[in-house]
Design a binder for these strands. Structure first.
Lengths: 300, 300
DNA sequence: TAAAATGATAAGGTCTTCTTATCACCCTGC
DNA sequence: GCAGGGTGATAAGAAGACCTTATCATTTTA
């Protein structure tokens, strides 16, 4: 029906008009003059009507004059699209977007990222943090290449590669009666002032749930939580990784019976390829975290 | 800098997405499936990032999803331009736009056009009429392919091919004293009521000019002019071709001393190619009018 | 009138882009 | 479990697009 115009010959025509001749255009395009002659002839017979006058000079026919602005428009849009796409590729090529839960982001990532950019000095990383739900949504929505989080629920859209296990324990002040215990069972927590926090839902479905249900506080902000614990207002449960080690007056006591842990792992979209940079990051994370499973607290 | 995207592969990508697979798209495009595979691979490495997921199925990568609307936009515009251009070619291919002075348009063109469309039944002709100035402007402005007119002034933009000569004469009613004369000289017109008309300026620069300068009327409309002549109000001068032969009561008497004629010819833009159809028309006109020069009235 | 510059053309090489034939894989149904 | 029909990927070869060098025919310039 309608012919398939290639962009190149259109560009030639524009150059011939703009430069005022085949030779000048050829020089400008780093091509030889016959190349333009032939390309133009090809285009002309594809359109069914000449674009340039036959008489020696590079003058447009009326039809050619009619075509020119359309050619220019088409070439311009082509270049705009092309430039936009490579810009996106190049921007994303050296860039990794990640999301992680705060404990991982603040405890593990600094050293991991520092090692990573030492290995790949040209890559850039953006790290967002938020709760497990947030991380999951970021990955699922494609806003982020990789996520590091605990598995909060199965999702057919997401792949989960377990990296490490993180045992839940009790956090209390150094002068608390639990402070020097090596382990605790849930029953012993009866009667304590238990503060819920963002990680408490990890315990839902375990024997610890009823205990948490009667807790008086629910503090999601870690700074506030630390302050309350240091003030001796109560105790809380946290995964060991989330335990604020910089607070010298707090102690972490692993729990058992039942033993509860969270599984921390790498999340990415299933059936969606990673950029080379993101794949390198995943590789790096698996290498550095894969073996190191926090099972120290697990009862033998 | 930015890669040269060809339209074809973009079209392939769209088809693969729309048809839901390489095979279906290949069938739809009348290509084989490997052709699409390879074209897509080529495009991918030109962009520097894959468009489809590797895993067997024809699923877009996030980058591919980003590209898709831009591809579609570009292909759509390409098709719009392509379709528009060939439509114009096809419309103009079988179409000739002409302009002629009224005498030619009404006296010569009917038979010429009738012969012409008999020779080329597929071609269509538009004929505009107006004075010589109008015809010249139509041709020069490219609004018309060919013009038939007297040469009113040299114009470097226009080519003039003389076709026929048309002698100026006096037109009067059958009962006028000039009516049965075989010839007249300008001097004999002294004292007559002379009506100027649109063709009178053909006489400027000749000995007849002073006579016309003192004329009382200037009638540009041929119908009005005929009415005045038939009413016996006066006489006028006209080229023979413009003499209204359908008016039985009017007579045409050639003038001499000085003999004045207008040169009627074909006008087209210099250095601008004619469409094949217009070239055929020019050929036809030259064949049918070229020999037939109205010299019968010229004094021997 | 000689020289330079224009665009057109011819022959040849290289790269692109198809084709056919085949592979490796996944899913389905018996 | 294991054919059979589906997917897309790959290899080898033919056809064509595209560019180059070399040359021609005109026109313009000096």
């Amino acid at each position: 029906m309608h012919p398939e115009l290639k962009i190149q010959p259109l560009r030639y025509v524009l150059a011939i008009v703009d430069e005022g001749g085949f030779h000048a255009a050829a020089r400008h395009l780093h091509r030889t003059q016959p190349a333009l002659s032939m390309a133009v002839r090809e285009l002309e017979q594809r359109l069914g009507e000449p674009l340039f006058e036959k008489g020696g000079k590079a003058t447009l026919t009326p039809f050619g004059a009619y075509c020119l602005p359309r050619f220019r428009e088409l070439v311009t849009q082509h270049d705009r699209v092309s430039r936009d796409l490579v810009a996106r590729v190049e921007k994303r090529a050296g860039h990794i977007d990640m999301a992680a839960v705060p404990s991982v982001a603040s405890r593990l990532m600094p050293r991991l990222l520092s090692d990573f950019i030492q290995r790949y000095p040209d890559l850039r990383v953006s790290l967002h943090d938020g709760n497990a739900d947030f991380v999951g949504r970021m990955v699922a929505g494609g806003e982020v290449d990789l996520g590091i989080s605990s598995l909060w629920q199965a999702d057919a859209e997401l792949d989960f590669y377990p990296l490490m296990r993180d045992a839940i324990g009790v956090v209390c002040r150094e002068d608390h009666r639990f402070a020097d215990r090596q382990a605790l069972s849930w029953q012993e927590l009866q009667g304590e002032v238990l503060i819920r926090n963002g990680t408490s839902r990890l315990l839902s479905g375990t024997g610890a749930e009823p205990l948490l249900a009667q807790s008086a506080f629910d503090i999601s902000n870690m700074i506030s939580l630390n302050a309350m614990l240091e003030a001796g207002i109560g105790i809380t449960t946290l995964p060991r990784l989330a335990f604020p080690e910089e607070c010298a007056r707090l102690r972490f006591v692993p729990l058992s019976e039942p033993y509860v842990e969270r599984q921390i792992g790498l999340i990415c979209r299933v059936d969606v390829s990673l950029s080379p940079a993101a794949a390198a990051m995943r590789q790096h994370l698996v290498e550095h975290l894969g073996e190191q499973t926090r099972e120290a607290d697990k009862p033998s």
